[in-house]
Nucleic acid binder design. Structure first.
Lengths: 227, 227
DNA sequence: ACCTGAACACCGTTCAAGT
DNA sequence: ACCTGAACACCGTTCAAGT
């Protein structure tokens, strides 16, 4: 996909409903692929497996989608079809908190999408709407556009990075297993202390929330200073 | 890899140098794979291609590495063999700024590693040392261990997320191409304004730095309040 | 015992044969 | 013209044949 799937993401969606609707459609293919990824992981989304689920031949898929890469791009954008609902009239901070949590929910619902978020891709209509929503929050504060973008990037960047350990922590007991090594105590003294205090295995702090509050605090200070 | 490559990452590294050193070694395999990934992308790292580069048979690789997944885990950790050098005696903020920029440099040098950072994996010795370095910065401020972890996660999370558009922006002119659409102005008014002001195509703000300063501001406020 | 080629079970996709 | 099976060029890995 030379254009990063751009044409496909933004092209005409549906043809006029004339005659019998075809058994296969791009919407149905993407929806089924998304269901497979959610349930079995992205790696299980093969053209063959997908075709079986849809009760069609493998090659029939290529009638509606140019290739695997473009399908994945469509899947990714499809996770963001519903724009987040933000509280209105409660200020930018409440709105951005809701936005950040919505992004987090998104990655929890579709863990496979997190790796894609870091991959090269054209922006689809879904992602564009999510971005636009967040930009609007800061623009309402009267900030210049480029500062709005930087602010959104700060929040979005934080969320994307902070969600990772949450997702993988669930089924990965090996994360800190290296501390059982003899040399661990001297090689990684600070990590060792962290675990020794048992504060990692039984976290008493909402790590995600703590970081988010710091990011928002930092933005708040900037906004107040530049009002 | 049932243990996420843990045993391999932390197992004995080298056997005693007796007799002629074998032509192939895990270190050499990982180093060559890393070179391929840096130059041609992670997708070009196939066992066959890698074997050709090393002048060996494909199956010979499996003498030193259990499989592809474990190889990738070793490659990822190999990007972090050199722990970052942080300024000492200039306070936590200077140190964490250096740490954050070092992480950013890492992903710029190995763009393929960014997607892996979001994937499930066991922590290797390299990543552990980087984490330990950052934890030490906050521990020196006398913060409880769990707060230190949350603070590092905030910075690391931000960097990981904010680096993404930097990396992909270079060779992706399609990112905002959707704005050429007729309906874009009303569908995405805030994004439209952003581009209309030309502030995106010719950014006058260091987006990465701006966000980082906000995150550090937020942490600074917390640290001062809890001193 | 050590090493490694041939064979296997996949993968996405091309292409031409079918209707 | 539309659809799709067989064939192709890959992929990682098993297994047994080689030394």
């Amino acid at each position: 996909m030379g254009d990063g799937g751009y044409e496909l993401l933004w092209g005409a969606k549906t043809r006029p409903a004339r005659g019998r609707p075809p058994a296969l459609s791009r919407e149905r293919i993407v929806a089924e692929a998304l269901a497979i990824a959610d349930a079995e992981g992205l790696q299980q989304v093969s053209m063959k497996h997908l075709a079986e689920r849809l009760g069609s031949g493998v090659m029939s898929l290529y009638r509606h989608v140019p290739g695997k890469d473009e399908l994945v791009a469509l899947m990714y954008d499809a996770t963001m079809t519903d724009p987040p609902r933000l509280p209105e009239g409660e200020g930018w901070r409440a709105a951005m908190t809701a936005w950040a949590l919505a992004v987090r929910d998104l990655f929890h619902a579709h863990p496979w999408a997190l790796a894609l978020a870091t991959a090269n891709h054209a922006m689809g209509p879904g992602e564009a709407r999510w971005l636009d929503t967040a930009l609007g929050v800061f623009e309402a504060e009267g900030l210049p556009a480029e500062i709005c973008l930087a602010a959104v990037m700060a929040v979005n960047g934080y969320v994307g990075g902070a969600v990772r350990p949450e997702i993988q922590g669930q089924d990965d007991p090996h994360w800190f297993r290296f501390l059982q090594h003899e040399s661990a105590r001297e090689d990684y003294p600070h990590v060792y202390r962290l675990v020794a205090e048992n504060s990692f295995t039984v976290p008493t702090v909402d790590v995600f929330g703590f970081g988010l509050e710091r990011v928002l605090d930092g933005l708040e200070r900037y906004i107040e200073d530049h009002r």
